[in-house]
Design a binder for these strands. Structure first.
Length: 511
RNA sequence: GGCGGCGUAGCUCAGCGGUAGAGCAGGGGAAUCAUAAUCCCUUGGUCGGUGGUUCAAAUCCUCCCGUCGCUACCA
């Protein structure tokens, strides 16, 4: 019986096209999902698209399309992006699917039956032009006493019937829950913000709208559609078949081990979502982790500046694995990062081509030329061989702990420490000299390096699946011997290795 | 305004009570198996400022300066 692991990306809102931020979240989640699978877990990795709400309705209208047509198109683009980035999702859920609607309505009923939903009126400053509410402090009062939104539109005090969720009664329960589960939200800085927000007092939450139609109808009151956040959050359990909570089914994955989110939506996941679930008597996620944002060449990414990075274009120019690597290597996960073309090229050339790619290439060509491509026996290892092997064998253990903290960049740093040590090792052992003085010793050194590379490549599969597949094949590792648990079985000596070819090309600017 | 984070080598950051660290960039050397990749050595910092606690402070506390985030319905 395998251990379960469930993780999710947010479902992406379809009012715009996918950009590097979406790619980042998905790639990070993918690395974690792949890592857990390599480590023997039964993984359920969920992603998808969020397709309701006024903004989508509007965006479709602006294009003269029906919402259905519009969301189909954009949702497909997100799915294509996921596929091109080789995101290994187990399910791609769309909030316009029937299974999701049923699930949402079931959860709503459950919470309503428990007494946590009531009908009242949403009051606030509403802008007809912007079709949304503004809070008092966002407004400016002009000379004749009228109030103006930041967009310049006039606002009016408006009352709209709305269902409310009794969030206020969950304040203490939530605080207690955070206390009991200190690792519930990461990173720490995000947790502080959240706690101070909750301590400052929670008001009830408006969870339905009557001003537009593009949403899931509230059960028993077809004048209302559910507020997008209620709708969206429920995707995580509708994909598991809620309200069917039979644990012999997909429901066995609940509660999820991780919701990976961007920092702008941490509150919805760490506060509203647990409250909804508690109100419905369901278990709460084990952990919410919020990562940072990317700037581009030092500037905030925005459509108006025109510096939005299309992940697919990046992949087309540099290749998938270098892009995946760069995004996770460049920045401490959880903090903000800056994308720059030069930084990507530096990482790609220095760390992938020079450090790792070249290490593999120099090792394998020596075996090809000096040993007729036959993988040598492990032989009699010296202390320096054993030391290097010991370092590399620690990696899976170190990585496991880091993955559970979502410290992906630390993992890559630790792997690269071993790669640097391996380059030092090959230089100090100088197998090209041993070739003339001690042929047997040369074979031991080269074989040691193959074993080290095999361990490194096994670990790196989660980050760079294609390249590491190629490397493991060159190292003579069977397709079905690539999990962490297979590392105890040494590669079969005496086999003929395929002729080596570079795994990571250097990138040369052509202009 | 309130709450919180951060400010350490040219750049990106680690260290968070006991003689200042890594990677990149810069300088010198070695080697030539390799994608001219690699290895070794090296230049460089009064750890934002101030006052304090301590035998001892980047490391704890005060105040100040700078910067960033959160402060409810904006995926």
């Amino acid at each position: 019986m395998k251990n379960h692991y469930m993780l999710t990306t947010p479902i992406y809102y379809v009012n715009g096209l996918p950009h590097i931020g979406h790619a980042y979240t998905s790639i990070a989640a993918d690395v974690m999902a792949r890592f857990k699978r390599l480590d023997g877990y039964d993984v359920f990795f969920l992603t998808g698209t969020d397709e309701h709400g006024q903004k989508v309705e509007q965006a479709a209208q602006n294009k003269g399309q029906t919402p259905e047509l519009f969301v189909n198109k954009i949702s497909n683009q997100f799915r294509n992006m996921a596929d091109q980035l080789k995101i290994s999702y187990n399910d791609f859920i769309r909030t316009t699917e029937d299974r999701h609607k049923k699930s949402c309505q079931a959860l709503w009923k459950k919470i309503a039956d428990a007494g946590y939903i009531y009908l009242d009126a949403y009051k606030g400053w509403y802008s007809l032009r912007d079709e949304c509410y503004y809070s008092e402090d966002e407004l400016t009062t002009i000379s004749d006493g009228r109030k103006i939104a930041p967009t310049g539109a006039e606002v009016k005090w408006l009352k709209e019937p709305s269902y409310f969720f009794k969030l206020s009664v969950w304040q203490d329960k939530l605080l207690e829950f955070y206390e009991l589960h200190p690792d519930f939200i990461g990173p720490e800085s995000r947790k502080n913000e959240l706690l101070s927000f909750v301590r400052s007092g929670l008001r009830d939450l408006s969870i339905s709208r009557t001003s537009f139609k593009w949403g899931i109808p509230v059960p028993g009151d077809s004048d209302h559609v559910m507020y997008v956040w209620f709708d969206a959050l429920v995707n995580y359990i509708s994909a598991l078949g809620y309200p069917n909570i039979d644990s012999s089914n997909l429901w066995r994955f609940w509660p999820t081990d991780l919701h990976l989110v961007g920092k702008e939506i941490a509150r919805f996941h760490a506060l509203y979502w647990p409250a909804f679930l508690m109100a419905a008597g369901l278990e709460v996620p084990k952990r919410i982790y919020s990562h940072g944002w990317w700037t581009v060449e030092g500037e905030k990414m925005s459509k108006s500046v025109g510096n939005v990075i299309d992940p697919i274009e990046l992949v087309n120019e540099f290749g998938l694995d270098p892009v995946r690597f760069f995004l996770l290597r460049e920045v401490p996960f959880g903090g903000d990062g800056d994308y720059s073309r030069q930084a990507l090229i530096n990482r790609m050339n220095n760390e992938l081509a020079n450090d790792l790619g070249n290490l593999a290439q120099r090792t394998l060509t020596q075996i090809a030329r000096n040993c007729e491509g036959i993988l040598p026996d492990i032989g009699q290892r010296f202390e320096e061989d054993i030391e290097l092997i010991a370092k590399v064998e620690l990696l899976p253990i170190i990585l496991r702990e880091q993955m559970d903290r979502q410290a992906l960049n630390e993992s890559l740093e630790d792997i690269w420490k071993v790669i640097r040590a391996s380059n030092a090792y090959i230089d100090h052992q100088a197998p090209w000299k041993l070739k003339k003085t001690d042929f047997e010793r040369m074979k031991v050194v080269l074989r040691t390096l193959v074993d080290v590379l095999r361990e490194i490549a096994t670990c790196l599969q989660a980050f760079m699946p294609d390249s590491m597949d190629k490397l493991l094949t060159q190292l003579g590792v069977d397709q079905n011997k690539r999990h962490f648990s297979d590392l105890e079985d040494k590669i079969q000596a005496g086999q003929k290795l395929p002729s080596p070819s570079p795994i990571f090309p250097r990138f040369i600017e052509t202009d």
